[in-house]
Design a protein around this nucleic acid. Structure first.
Length: 262
DNA sequence: ATGACCTAACTTTTAGGA
């Protein structure tokens, strides 16, 4: 089973690239982030024509996440939003159970973790609180001893090797010690970070800013991750970054990351 | 050396991103 995560930075702007990616890579499951539209604006017809069914959690203008599954796989037990804050209006979490004839089930989440900048604003405590809610929910999921993949844009640079210029990120919400500690606390619930496990070399990036010629200078960071429960990690075959998509016309600033499970 | 972008929205400027 092939599972991909991609922050598309507006699904309406990126549906052409998405359908091309679906046709070429044929992922079984796709986790999307930053839809930037409401559920009724999601380009369902084009995606269904490509052979995929989807569940979305959208909101106006900002955020928004989705799960796509390739027929004949099906998506059940869909959860929208993380437990722990009934007042949270931001569309940043959707989860479901992917099943199919002759396929071992996998529980998959699409996560758009808050950016958290500026650090001296309420946005940073919101980020840390979201990470703690995610950790607690992940701990609850672990009790079921299932194959779980928590995938998405974590807005966390885990290590200095995951940035071309780590000093530039020293005081940023994506790289502050508290942020990285919270990410390690999530991993410590028993998750394996798939790309790191498969390809531990430095300089593997998933995001290049639109500004300052970041792509041409390869001034990237690695912030999109797939976290595997032990039952999923046992099935891990490979992980890869679809770097080529950053070089297309009108690209997202993120590229897809894909894992292959048996 | 410096500056350099993109998206959505009650749009001609702002908020948000990272």
């Amino acid at each position: 089973m092939r599972i991909a995560t991609w922050n598309v930075n507006s699904i309406k702007q990126r549906v052409g690239h998405l359908v091309a990616f679906l046709d070429e890579a044929k992922p079984d499951v796709v986790c999307l982030q930053e839809l930037k539209c409401q559920d009724d604006g999601f380009p369902r017809a084009e995606i269904e024509a490509a052979g995929y069914a989807g569940e979305t959690l959208g909101q106006k203008a900002y955020n928004g996440v989705a799960l796509l599954v390739r027929a004949p796989l099906t998506l059940g037990e869909v959860r929208r939003g993380l437990p722990g804050d009934e007042n949270d209006e931001q569309a940043r979490y959707i989860e479901g159970l992917v099943t199919g004839e002759g396929t071992a089930p996998v529980r998959v989440a699409s996560i758009y973790l808050p950016n958290g900048n500026p650090v001296d604003s309420p946005k940073y405590p919101y980020k840390l609180a979201f990470m703690e809610r995610l950790r607690r929910h992940a701990r609850d999921l672990m009790m079921h001893e299932e194959a779980i993949v928590l995938a998405g844009d974590y807005n966390v640079i885990p290590e200095a090797d995951d940035a071309s210029d780590p000093d530039a990120w020293r005081d940023d919400a994506l790289f502050l010690p508290r942020t990285r500690t919270a990410f390690r606390a999530l991993l410590a619930e028993g998750f394996t970070e798939a790309l790191r496990a498969c390809d531990p070399k430095p300089g593997l990036y998933t995001f290049w800013d639109y500004q300052a010629g970041a792509w041409n200078r390869n001034a990237g960071i690695r912030i999109d991750h797939l976290l595997l429960s032990p039952q999923a990690a046992d099935r891990l075959v490979s992980a890869s970054v679809q770097k080529r998509l950053r070089g297309l016309e009108k690209p997202s600033d993120h590229v897809p990351v894909t894992v292959e499970l048996t």
